[in-house]
Amino acid sequence: MTKPKIALYWAAACGGCDVAVLDTNEKILDIANLADIVFWPVALDFKYHHVEEMADTSIDLCLFNGAVRNSEQEEIARLLRAKSKVMVAFGACACFGGIPALGNFTTRDEIFERVYIESPSSANENRTFPQTLTKVEEGELDLPEMFDTVMTLAQVVDVEYFIPGCPPPVDIILKVVDLFASGQLPPVGAIIASDKTLCDECERTKEEKKIARIYRPHQIIPDPNRCLLEQGIICCGPATRGGCGVRCVKANMPCRGCFGPPPGVIDQGAKLVSAIASIYQSDGQEDINRMLEDIVDPAGTFYRFGMADSMLKRKSLPQGERRA
């Protein structure tokens, strides 16, 4: 009997999701025994043409990490979709846009101007910018086109499953492999994590959610046993799906929302605005003004990982849109 085939790919990514797969440690050998890994750019030598030569849906499981922010990533997402039975958005970037999606607060032109002209180390008086096509003596060199807007994988192709996290924890990765191997993958569309919020998993003592001040993590040394939100530190726990093992809060840092919105919440950032503003105690305009001052960057704080997946998706573009 032929072994099932697995593919992995990294798009607009940092590499951390691939490292997380390596963090399955010796179980990676079990995975390699159970299935043939037919494509994995960071670790194996297969090229795009190998994928193109595969029959459609011959890849049984594709773990796609990273967001989509250029034409090559979009093309490979479509290619892998065509060749795969099951497509998994692996990690916060593929699921929600992740950190790269913070680029949705700006535009390609602004980025280019900053990177190639304004940045203090740039020496570019000729105002040379990268081009999608450059003619040189020997022929032509091309580059993928960079989009204005960063997208989630599901905004480009159909996706069967979502594994959130930055990066996904090893136990969830192994659970997915197990479910796949035993033919017990859940109904299509499932997000493979907890069905509750992070708060449900968190073991810190919770009393009453009422705060009079908001502090940024560096401004106070919090009690390691009490709920961070109750101590005035913005923790995204109430509007974040659980299942991560509460790793950040256990390190005394607040949750930043990398598991995305919990069931029933469409827009994670909006939910956080609602939650944080609700628990803030105010006696009048002065208190409200102080709250606004203390939350220095609401968009960045509440949409840190979820910009591409939010209802607004991006900051308004200057005039019309160039691409996606």
Partner: peptide, 20 residues
């Protein structure tokens, strides 16, 4: 009275999205 806090915070955030 939650609206009195939610709306100003929402407006501050929407400004970051370029929404007047």
């Amino acid at each position: 009275m939650k609206a009195a806090r939610r709306i100003p915070l929402m407006k501050k955030m929407l400004a970051q999205f370029g929404i007047e």
